[in-house]
Computed example of a mutant assay.
Amino acid sequence: MKYNLEKGSQTVYALQYHFVTVTKYRADILTDEIAERLGEIASDISEDFGVSIQNVNGGSDHVHILFTAKPTTNLTKFINSLKGVSSRKVRDEYPETRQALDSAFWQPGYFLATTGQVSIDVLMEYVEDQ
């Protein structure tokens, strides 16, 4: 089993996450230009949290972000910052989004899952064979 490993002073880890958030009321307002800007904003914010953005994509009403993090990353703070800052910046830079949405850009909730570099079945087999 081979992982893409990161290293800290006394740790070795591989922490990847899949994050999804949805526009308020699932409004169809995410154009390609706005999605690209969201990727830039995510990259800027990630630097402050020691997070590395791997990919940003989505549809007209949602965004998917794949990222890697450190074991010490406060994921809640990172995601709250990501949603708050991106909401403010996109609404300021793209006034048409303000017209489509009253007070908030994103729905309050989100989806976050850890991703593995191997399937759970392969991992279970590996652990059983140890």
Rank of each mutant, 00 (worst) to 15 (best):
58 G>E: 01
71 P>A: 10
35 A>P: 01
42 A>C: 08
31 T>K: 00
62 H>Y: 03
55 N>P: 00
52 S>I: 14
52 S>L: 12
41 I>G: 01
48 D>H: 12
21 T>F: 11
28 D>P: 15
57 N>A: 13
23 T>C: 10
47 E>A: 13
31 T>D: 05
32 D>G: 09
63 V>R: 00
66 L>F: 11
62 H>M: 02
47 E>L: 11
57 N>P: 08
60 S>Q: 14
54 Q>C: 11
42 A>S: 05
20 V>C: 04
22 V>G: 09
62 H>Q: 03
50 G>W: 00
65 I>C: 02
23 T>D: 00
56 V>K: 04
42 A>Y: 05
63 V>S: 03
68 T>P: 05
42 A>V: 09
55 N>Y: 07
37 R>N: 00
65 I>Q: 04
40 E>C: 13
62 H>P: 04
54 Q>G: 14
64 H>S: 09
26 R>Y: 10
62 H>T: 12
53 I>W: 08
34 I>A: 05
25 Y>K: 10
19 F>H: 00
53 I>T: 07
49 F>W: 06
36 E>N: 08
26 R>T: 10
50 G>H: 11
29 I>Q: 07
30 L>A: 12
36 E>V: 15
57 N>G: 15
57 N>F: 09
36 E>H: 14
55 N>T: 14
27 A>L: 11
60 S>F: 11
32 D>I: 14
39 G>R: 05
32 D>Y: 09
55 N>W: 11
51 V>D: 05
56 V>H: 06
37 R>K: 10
51 V>E: 06
27 A>S: 14
66 L>P: 03
66 L>M: 10
59 G>Y: 10
31 T>W: 06
31 T>A: 03
55 N>K: 14
34 I>E: 05
63 V>P: 07
39 G>F: 08
24 K>W: 13
39 G>T: 14
68 T>F: 01
39 G>V: 15
63 V>G: 05
23 T>F: 04
71 P>G: 06
62 H>S: 02
40 E>T: 14
30 L>R: 01
61 D>T: 12
57 N>W: 09
52 S>D: 10
41 I>F: 08
67 F>Y: 07
38 L>A: 02
70 K>P: 04
41 I>N: 06
68 T>L: 02
37 R>E: 09
68 T>V: 10
70 K>E: 11
59 G>I: 13
54 Q>T: 14
36 E>D: 07
19 F>P: 02
20 V>H: 08
36 E>W: 09
67 F>T: 01
36 E>A: 14
30 L>P: 07
29 I>M: 04
46 S>W: 05
58 G>H: 06
31 T>E: 01
35 A>S: 15
31 T>N: 03
32 D>E: 11
57 N>Q: 11
52 S>G: 12
64 H>A: 05
58 G>R: 07
59 G>L: 13
37 R>A: 01
26 R>C: 09
27 A>N: 13
49 F>C: 01
49 F>V: 08
48 D>F: 08
44 D>S: 12
66 L>E: 01
22 V>H: 05
52 S>C: 07
40 E>R: 03
33 E>M: 04
28 D>W: 02
22 V>E: 06
33 E>K: 09
25 Y>I: 12
24 K>G: 03
51 V>S: 01
71 P>D: 03
48 D>A: 15
66 L>A: 14
20 V>W: 10
39 G>W: 07
69 A>H: 04
68 T>R: 01
57 N>D: 08
55 N>Q: 13
45 I>Y: 04
68 T>H: 03
36 E>Y: 13
